[in-house]
Design a binder for these strands. Sequence first.
DNA 1: ATTACTAAGTGACGAGTAT
DNA 2: TATACTCGTCACTTAGTAA
Lengths: 237, 237
Amino acid sequence: MNQGGHSRQSFGRKARTLLSLLSLMKMSSGSGEIVTSTGALAEILGVSQQTGSILLRELASAGLIMRRMSRRGERITLTPKAYDVVTQELAGIPLDSLSKASRTSPLKITGRAFTGKGEGAYYISQRAYSKQIEDKLGFAPYLGTLNLRVTKLDDINKLTLIYGTTPIVLKGFSTRERAFGDVQCYRVKVEGVSNAALVRSNRTAYDLTVVELISDKYLRKALSIKDGDGVSFSFPA
Amino acid sequence: MNQGGHSRQSFGRKARTLLSLLSLMKMSSGSGEIVTSTGALAEILGVSQQTGSILLRELASAGLIMRRMSRRGERITLTPKAYDVVTQELAGIPLDSLSKASRTSPLKITGRAFTGKGEGAYYISQRAYSKQIEDKLGFAPYLGTLNLRVTKLDDINKLTLIYGTTPIVLKGFSTRERAFGDVQCYRVKVEGVSNAALVRSNRTAYDLTVVELISDKYLRKALSIKDGDGVSFSFPA
DNA sequence: ATTACTAAGTGACGAGTAT
DNA sequence: TATACTCGTCACTTAGTAA
């Protein structure tokens, strides 16, 4: 029942649908599949869990997504129709003019600190990595990472902009125990600290909401950061 | 007052802003400037003139557009900030996957017939053009064009999709009086009539809301079209 | 003709809550 | 935990109209 008969708030409706789809597409990283919950999605979109629920229901009933619910969260699949809708809305937008549009101010991103499983520290502690960091980033890294969770959609958008730039790449290597893949680094400034970088490995790249930062300082101490604190960094550094 | 403090409907707000900007960008055809009125813009967006007015005021106060008002209509200029906003929202969207997303059904576009200034007929009457039409499109054109005005945003979006495909090009030429530029043709089916094409020249390309159709038949007569009638065509033909 | 104010109707949003 | 319902509140939209 998708005829032209505009009910009343069709513009706002369409706008919300488009922004929801764009967000889902970003989260899916091209795969067209997202595993999330109405609450998590809602937080990213900046709306309540209830509204997140309604948005997903609308998208589903419009045939734009498929939902597979399970006990803990659900699997959302974007349908071809969703891509059609976005394609139509974006058709005619000169994307070149977007990229040439001057990035005026640095990107500032805020996340909340949390304690990871120590895997980041394990990575950085590998000599082959830390040596490359000294060579390519110019500082000897503290042997640990500061983990941030980014939830605001605006910030996630900025992250994808950063990931779209050319990274400094730490080459992967193999020990007799296991293989370590390439790591992408982006120079950032963390609350005024310049010798810092955002690091992104295959291990974490799948989750757009998690950011790992390294620095020559023990950032938690230098900046007095506790779990749950808001931490901002800017790019370019 | 554009701080992070999400007031209440920031999601819907952002969504409307984004869709408005996208529409304006499409209308500007990359130049970043649009000459329109709140009423005309509103019709394209599918909202009332009042809402169109409010949208423009919001965009202006957010620093996303500049408005130069004059007696009849106004000149709108998109600011760099507008491109930044759109860039951010579109960052991370794999645009390639959009174009490869299967166009399933043909595009159907509806416009309202109107009487032009006869320039289209003047063009078609040029032997150099009509000869090429016979050769490349396979029919001898009726020496006139059917003009349609397209106002619905969805239809304009579809038009830009059509313009994104590879056209059949009628080569330009010069008479001793003046020069005629290249003309892009797209095969369409007009209300079931197959020998038809949408023609686009430098003369009309600036206005996305105007469509010129040619056919081997006198379409106004064959389909009993009067000014103001709704006429639909589909692509691919 | 245009833009935009006011008032009123309606839809969207979120807190509380059921499941 | 999760999703989604009810309902009160507020924002968006539009008709009428002023300028």
